[in-house]
Write a protein that binds this DNA or RNA. Structure first.
Ligand SMILES: [Mn+2]
Ligand SMILES: [Mn+2]
Ligand SMILES: [Mn+2]
Ligand SMILES: [Mn+2]
Lengths: 230, 230
DNA sequence: ATAAAGGTTTAGGTTTGTCTAAATTTTATT
DNA sequence: AATAAAATTTAGACAAACCTAAACCTTTAT
């Protein structure tokens, strides 16, 4: 089955929203896709007609098994292309999202598999998110939100919770990226800000908003499953 | 200025038709794009409104300077991606046209330039066609049609006149590709077929239809400018 | 020179994906 | 339980890119 760019973008967005809160609402999807609720309803009818959704009027919706398979294949393409752009073409990890948003719709399955081999079957994209294999299986990296990281535990930044330019600009300024190793020195309850330490830098502080978008993998033990971004 | 996939496909097709016969007709463009003349007229009005064409009702049309610039940038992307697919991803040169037909519409100019660097600024695509540089300039390879190649002159296949699967299947069967060096041993006037010799193979014969789609670069001297395919 | 043929454009529709405004259903509040 | 608020769907329109059929030019042939 072949889908339009629009259909694919809807399917992928539903997939991402489901990662957070099980059932998805019309308004949430509209705001995710920067469109209007009425347009979403139209598309829901179409996708439901193609058996990609579990959908009951007024009750929210989720992807069917078939829909999930389609979503995972788009996510696979998106993350493989991001990996290619960063590791082969030398883009910055903060520049690749919009380009991958287009490349993910190229339809050749053979292309995807050749690209995957060419890149030696990478397991994670440049934002730390796992790349589904051809069957939709992917590694679940054990991640902790920075907010939940205990004091003095060394951990490596492994994912960021959004790809907004604003966030990536701030991370660049603070010299934080995927792979950065840090520990939390203090937590301030007044504003939930954190004092953190990165090797070779003096300690500095991070706002609650920023900490909430960072996911880390503790270097020794201490495992929790966290949420996952695009 | 940003154009839709459809607009870009029209612009590129007009460019290719112009390479053959100066002014382009509605019907020719319709058949090139596998669409109907009425649809072509609709699009001509649109492109003309954007100053991409020289168009007068009933009189045919050509690309304006602006239109030519747009066309060359799409051709550049198409051929760079084909080069990438063949030389990096190990596709056969007969498998890449349709994928490049999609990739050529990815809109990031930075991506194109990074890809060009990554590939070390190739000058010709896998079908022997020249790749325009960022300013639209490209090498004009001196080519002769196989029909016009004198007897016993060694020449290298440098371009094929179409990308149809049927043609490429036949070329594969005969072990002819870009780079193949051959000489013409005899010409038969009855059916215009040719007896040719490729190094390490016994002589074999080629039909007029096939010879007409092959363009070659003589290895010593003997220069003519030939036409150019996609 | 006129008529026929061929090529091109216009008129009027369809599909896809979007929108605003109005109607409907669900959920929250008193 | 009734009402107000919020979320969702429906109704009706619109632009893009197609289509068929009919009308309109241009070219070719008698
Ligand atoms: Mn996309
Ligand atoms: Mn990513
Ligand atoms: Mn194309
Ligand atoms: Mn080519």
């Amino acid at each position: 089955m072949k889908f339009s760019v629009s259909e694919e973008n809807y399917i992928k967005s539903i997939y991402h929203l489901q990662q957070q809160g099980e059932v998805v609402s019309t308004n949430d999807l509209a705001s995710e896709l920067q469109t209007k609720a009425a347009s979403v309803t139209d598309m829901l009818k179409k996708l439901n007609g193609k058996n990609l959704l579990n959908y009951e009027r007024y009750q929210g919706f989720t992807l069917s098994d078939e829909g999930t398979k389609v979503a995972l294949s788009i996510v696979r393409k998106h993350r493989l292309w991001e990996y290619f752009l960063v590791h082969e073409l030398e883009f910055g990890w903060d520049e690749v999202h919009d380009i991958a948003e287009e490349l993910e719709h190229i339809s050749s399955p053979l292309l995807v598999e050749k690209l995957d081999s060419y890149l030696s079957h990478p397991k994670f994209d440049p934002h730390g998110d796992p790349i589904p294999d051809i069957n939709g299986k992917m590694e679940l990296r054990k991640q902790v939100n920075l907010i939940d990281l205990p004091l003095d535990v060394e951990a490596e930044v492994s994912a960021v919770g959004s790809q907004s330019t604003e966030l990536l600009e701030l991370l660049k300024h603070k010299n934080i990226g995927i792979g950065t190793v840090l520990t939390v020195l203090r937590k301030f309850t007044f504003d939930n800000s954190l004092e953190i330490k990165v090797r070779n830098f003096p300690p500095f502080s991070i706002s609650q908003q920023l900490a909430q978008t960072l996911f880390l993998k503790p270097l020794y033990g201490s495992t929790t499953v966290g949420s996952i971004s695009k």
